[in-house]
Amino acid sequence: MSFLGRFTRPAPRVDADSWDPDLARMRAAAVRRDWPALRERLAGIPDGQERTWLLARVADVEGIETWIPAVVAAEPDSALALLVSGAHRVSWAWEARTGYRAVHVSQERFRTFHERLRVAEEELYEAAEREPDWVTPWYFLQRAGRGLQVGQETSRLRFEAAVRRCPEHLGSHEQQLQQVCSKWSGSHEEMHAFARTSMLKGSEGGPLGELVALAHLEHWLELDGGEDMAYIRRPDVVAELHEAADRSVRHPAYGRPRDWLSTYNTFAMAFSLAGEKKAAAELFNALEGRVTEFPWEYLSGDPTKAFSKWRAKAGG
């Protein structure tokens, strides 16, 4: 290999299957309407953060709504069929709503959004009743509830139902973080308190340190130009980011769970904005060009461009 070749950085790219072979096979099964194959693979993974993460990405596959009702009808006792149907309806609903602010979403889209979420809730509650130990239905009920504006009390109860079943479930903590942030009728103070308390209650080397980075990115996003960078480069904010990384991605016990790429991308963006080039470069180097759309979409319609820009600044 040439001198230059050894230092060539991989071109950044987003992968629909998150570079995960299991996910790729599940999404392919969903595309070809192969329920037996999808059922077998999902059933082979114990319910928890891994299954939730996988199903959340399978649920994004277009067209599941055209064949999953027949599966539910053919397997009336199957909690897994109801779970897949409910999960997809949640994703399908948010697709109808779009990511625009409410003032820019038509009434027709909102009606479709709410109709799909209401059906999803019925299916998810039924799945939860049939399999009371499963956390995944409660995760999707959190997502549905935010869209239906069920209120902070009901949202909190759904979060508590999830963490009773899986105390360090990252997805459910992320959903509750969104619920208490300012854009969903919470506040910056409540959001940061939730993130830090959750991290400290969790195990060292566990996943919940990411919540602190997410909270600071959400706060940064709400500020005007100039104020945003001044905020995220404050010494106390930088110190909290390092503490969170030390308790999660930089801790020897962290390893690389199935969803590690999104966590590394989150910390890479947070450290980049905070001006912590060395910390960001370590994460960029580990990622080897593997980009997750979130959170880079906060910076650009093309996440790979944002990733490339900040990777170059960090020297990663």
Results as ranks from 00 to 15, higher is better:
3 F>M: 10
4 L>S: 12
9 R>I: 10
9 R>P: 04
9 R>C: 05
11 A>C: 08
11 A>I: 14
15 D>Y: 10
21 P>T: 09
23 L>D: 01
24 A>P: 03
27 R>C: 13
31 V>K: 12
32 R>T: 15
34 D>V: 05
39 R>I: 03
44 G>M: 06
48 G>Q: 06
53 W>H: 05
58 V>D: 09
60 D>W: 15
64 I>N: 03
67 W>P: 03
70 A>H: 06
76 P>I: 09
77 D>A: 13
78 S>F: 06
81 A>F: 07
84 V>Q: 10
84 V>D: 10
86 G>M: 05
89 R>V: 03
92 W>Y: 15
94 W>Q: 11
97 R>T: 01
98 T>K: 06
99 G>T: 11
102 A>M: 13
103 V>H: 12
104 H>C: 09
105 V>M: 10
107 Q>V: 11
112 T>W: 11
113 F>Y: 15
121 E>S: 09
125 Y>N: 14
127 A>P: 01
128 A>S: 15
135 V>Q: 03
140 F>R: 05
148 L>H: 07
148 L>S: 02
149 Q>E: 14
150 V>D: 05
150 V>N: 02
156 R>L: 13
160 E>Q: 14
163 V>Q: 00
168 E>N: 08
184 W>T: 02
186 G>N: 00
187 S>H: 01
190 E>Y: 03
191 M>T: 01
192 H>D: 13
195 A>Y: 08
196 R>K: 13
201 K>D: 14
202 G>A: 15
203 S>L: 12
205 G>C: 01
206 G>Q: 06
207 P>V: 07
208 L>C: 03
209 G>C: 05
213 A>F: 09
213 A>L: 11
213 A>G: 09
214 L>D: 08
215 A>Q: 04
217 L>P: 04
218 E>I: 12
219 H>Y: 14
219 H>L: 12
222 E>Q: 12
223 L>M: 13
229 M>Y: 08
229 M>V: 14
236 D>H: 03
237 V>I: 11
239 A>W: 08
243 E>R: 15
247 R>D: 07
247 R>P: 04
248 S>M: 09
250 R>S: 10
250 R>Q: 10
251 H>T: 10
252 P>L: 04
255 G>T: 04
257 P>E: 02
258 R>S: 09
259 D>Y: 14
266 T>F: 04
266 T>M: 01
274 A>K: 00
276 E>N: 09
276 E>S: 15
277 K>I: 00
277 K>E: 13
278 K>T: 12
278 K>C: 04
280 A>T: 02
281 A>N: 11
282 E>F: 03
283 L>H: 00
287 L>E: 01
288 E>T: 01
288 E>W: 07
289 G>I: 01
289 G>M: 04
290 R>T: 00
306 A>C: 06
308 S>F: 07
313 K>Y: 08
316 G>H: 02
316 G>W: 02
